[in-house]
Design a protein around this nucleic acid. Structure first.
Lengths: 354, 354
DNA sequence: TTGTACGCGTTATCAC
DNA sequence: GTGATAACGCGTACAA
């Protein structure tokens, strides 16, 4: 016999509960999805029986029937880059608060892997968030056509996006250094295809020119400690007395490179980071630009969920573009440009060695 | 008419491809899942048509039919704790290599949230990895009964687990400090319900006793920078000349607390961290215990996948228990104990007034 | 307010 | 080698 509500193996289904309570499967389904259509008494009987039996909705069956999954995907270039964990965390919490589960993907800075991951995820999510994507615009548009998509720190027309605006704070940083008497400033950049890096490089150049100088721009590729450390040679060869780094990791590498060459910070050299991912836990505390990474993650997910809600309500998506401000945080790695007098630098060296 | 393969809207389905190629839906399905059962020519026709139409398997339908999802879940106490990103990254990569997608959950150190997340995930994953779980053992067993489960840094009988063994390295750290002449050592612990913290506290205590001294154990709750900083008062009051911290974050907090009180490291005080999450990017470089977090993530996922494969093959799970070794890495925050000539009493007085 | 019946897209079990 | 056909569990018109 093929009794659908039979006491067969496996986890309890809607049919099972229905046969136990003595109602139809449809009624059980409604008890969860649309309780207002049922008499309170029936709802009560169903839900208590469901709890009794340890019923759990089969998400695959539900997704198959409704076309909705209750999942979103988040793809980042590198989970281990300290900029992303707070963003991931906030995104996950925002999604969780709305009852969504989050797939996480790490593409290792490679656009091709990003596309592969997105394809894999697309089949079981309602939408995606791409953080700091370095994929070409047409690839992003193609993905956006398939599923609702929100970008973080990537500016593509027609795709909803959340941008952390560091340009203003970058200009402040340069002004801060100029005010301290620094004439020659280096900028150690990030990945060439990164929107953030392009934005920051441009801002530094403009600000430096306003102060009557040309920055020494060092292309750096991946934003890592090692890259910063290696850049120190050229920075010093270029006669710079201060450096602005693409992010704190690079800045910290610069700090290490300077320390190993006996250059004291901030006595002989000033360093500014970006993102404030390490500033509070390094010594000396890093002057940096505080970027609201967690806010960006949260806002991106909230935006995506809004897009999902409105698209299922038939509305047409607008060209959303959120901009989050950052600000310069002056700590202890910036100071007056070294003068020709020697007393200052020796005092600073002692501080730097602490 | 109700032509299943009609040119209706929506993404292409197996039925659609079948009608285009002129074969049955079953054949199309087999072309992907069991090509060896088909004539090469048929396979070729099907797959090319599928590519042509941009066919993507509907994962919900597949999961409903097979009972397998191709997903796993990873739950951690705090994504932003630098110990976890490398673990998450390695886990994601290992899963990806096997064609699995990863759900990520952050329970914010709260066992209740861990259980809630696990429930939500359980419906759409084939198995789960719980990292540093602080849930009671019976809760973990209950979850393990529902889905294949692998633990990281949590030792529960009968549940497959991957443990990072820091006990040996902790003893080495204490021996290292004792060898440098330190008589009184503080241990700033982590979350009380954390297996790692219990293991480390015990190891420090045993090793200290072997060297003829009792460590000052300071309970610290959540492993954060702030906690380490706050612990400094009691550390100095206790007359310690060295501290071992539950992790690098706490150690870095201790460093900051010492610096703000004018205590020089390693001149007047020695600090040892654990996990090696920050060691290479701080200044001075932190003496710490290198823990293979990434290995743990990778091994945990590989173990889970093996469990999944063998359970679908009908085999019974064994009581797997992997132990990964760590080792002491001496950098620049440990040095000889200050000689008794130096003003130990004045330093203690200053700390007490603080 | 509740029950009936069908479809979602795929895989697996039979036949042929 | 290939084709029908029946599940898989749920949501939802439509009917009552």
């Amino acid at each position: 016999m093929s009794d659908t509500g039979g006491t067969g193996e496996g986890p309890p289904t809607i049919a099972k509960i229905a046969s136990v309570v003595g109602v139809s499967p449809a009624t059980v389904s409604r008890a969860f999805g649309h309780p207002e259509l049922l008499s309170p008494a029936t709802v009560e009987r169903v839900v208590s029986a469901a709890r009794e039996l340890g019923y759990t909705p089969n998400s695959a069956a539900r997704a198959l029937s409704t076309g909705r999954h209750g999942n979103i995907a988040l793809i980042v270039p590198d989970i281990a880059n300290p900029f992303f964990p707070p963003l991931i965390r906030a995104a996950q919490q925002a999604a969780d608060a709305a009852g969504f589960c989050v797939f996480l993907g790490d593409c290792g800075e490679r656009p091709a892997r990003e596309a592969t991951l997105a394809d894999k995820f697309a089949a079981q999510v309602d939408g995606l968030v791409l953080a700091s994507s370095r994929s070409p615009a047409d690839g992003i548009h193609a993905l956006a056509r398939r599923r609702p998509l929100v970008l973080v720190n990537r500016d593509v027309d027609g795709v909803p996006r959340v941008l952390i605006n560091t340009a203003g704070a970058m200009r402040d940083a340069v002004a801060h250094l100029a005010g301290l008497g620094h004439k020659k400033i280096a900028y150690v950049s990030g990945p060439a295809s990164s929107w953030s890096s392009q934005q920051r490089r441009k801002a530094v150049r403009q600000a430096a020119e306003q102060h009557g100088t040309q920055p020494l721009v060092l292309p750096a590729g991946e934003p890592t400690y090692a890259v910063g450390e290696k850049a120190v040679v050229k920075i010093l060869e270029g006669g710079c007395t201060a450096a602005v780094a693409f992010d704190d990791l690079v800045a910290q590498g610069i700090m290490a490179g300077l320390a190993s060459r006996g250059v004291a910070v901030p006595g002989q050299f000033s360093v500014v980071g970006c993102d404030d991912t390490l500033g509070a836990i390094t010594y000396p505390p890093l002057t940096t630009i505080a970027a609201p990474a967690a806010d960006a993650g949260r806002v991106a997910v909230e935006l995506l969920l809004r897009v999902l809600a409105s698209s299922s309500a038939g509305e047409r998506a607008r060209d959303d573009r959120y901009s989050l401000d950052s600000r310069l945080v002056v700590r202890a790695t910036t100071g007056p440009a070294p003068s020709s007098r020697s007393s200052r630098s020796s005092r600073a060296r002692r501080a730097g060695a602490q």
